[in-house]
Nucleic acid binder design. Sequence first.
DNA 1: CCAAAAGTGTTAGTGATACACCCATGT
DNA 2: ACATGGGTGTATCACTAACACTTTTGG
Lengths: 223, 223
Amino acid sequence: MEDNIHKYEKPSVTADIVIYTIQNNDLKILLVKRGITPFKDKWAIPGGFVRIHESLEDAAKRELEEETGVKDVYLEQLYSFGDPKRDPRGRVITVAYMTLINSEKIKLNAATDVSEVRWFSVKKIPQLAFDHKKILDYSLKRLKWKFEYTTVAFSLLPEKFTIGQIQKIYEIIFDKKFDKRNFAKKILSLDILKKEEMKKNVSHRPPMLYSLKKDIGEIVEIL
Amino acid sequence: MEDNIHKYEKPSVTADIVIYTIQNNDLKILLVKRGITPFKDKWAIPGGFVRIHESLEDAAKRELEEETGVKDVYLEQLYSFGDPKRDPRGRVITVAYMTLINSEKIKLNAATDVSEVRWFSVKKIPQLAFDHKKILDYSLKRLKWKFEYTTVAFSLLPEKFTIGQIQKIYEIIFDKKFDKRNFAKKILSLDILKKEEMKKNVSHRPPMLYSLKKDIGEIVEIL
DNA sequence: CCAAAAGTGTTAGTGATACACCCATGT
DNA sequence: ACATGGGTGTATCACTAACACTTTTGG
């Protein structure tokens, strides 16, 4: 620790960010097609170098905004990947983040350094550059854990929502059906929802709208 | 991402490692007293710069061995801390690791760059250098989680052990008593233990020895 | 009238907790 | 004989999982 800060050659550090959203009842992630070598024309998780005066989280946020125009969302650090051979250009350590965004808020801005940006269903991911497959696999595990034990799911919903909407999100993430009665019972018993008014103009029996209570602790066992 | 790898000034990267053990029925961590500025004479979590051709995990393992002489143990990456101001000497990102070692295997090697190395009860931690208090708090949360949901606890025990020994470890980590009957029932019902022979030469009813089955999956809900 | 999603209760099974006494050994 | 930790069973409670029909609205 007490070695001089300049004694050793320094690595580059990047922040990569796995960006999830739900579209068409499907869990998707954003990938960018690399315009330059190495791995030219391969798809990759968005990311970029951490600037010298920027925190890791700020770097991840900057990448997110560059790619999607989205700010102020749930963002979580996942893991740091530092195999010395993970980038053929030299020593590059990456700090991986993950975020979950409401697809209505997105406007894709193809950044100048990539030839293409696209959403991919997590069920149909192409071959990825670097060790990005490992990062993706890791993030998926963490994502499921987060849905099971926290209220992240609500960051995918508008301010007011129905029980049915929450249930659909859980069914997409876990790729299975839940019993409607048990699901509602469970969610309501957690005492994290506030009743709002009835939803109007729906072509079926009008559902109750709920909002998430403000003062919820971080961890709530949902499922 | 496609910016040139040399376009931005590079940060230093360190690996810090929170080393836990149990001694005298108490959970302890290893701290080193800093011999040089900044934070001279403050206690700190052991760590050091990641070498350019060394993986993050190898750097953490190297630090661990330098401080304790211990190799081949459970080691887990916790989180990366990258606030630009966390080190007054310049930009230093640290990747924090945690490990759990059997206190019988330790021989402390005071490394040359620190003036003192000591075990501290987690209940009596002195003021720490840098943002090491944050790292420690984070690691403690993770540690408890690990004990609840995985079999790490067994890395603190010899090959063969009694139910009572496991229970004592859990009581130390969670700082509370468990009911003996319920605890044994729970542990045995998990089907992760193999019965060995009876323990001999104890001054009370001889207990059954168990070993951990080899083919256990990573996550087992213990408590 | 039809389609679509909402709303709602009971039962059976499983796992968690609370609780107290006798046993085998060494000294 | 005593001290030490080991070993064991039952009853209650809380939570989970399985399961189907009626309601309200718009088109």
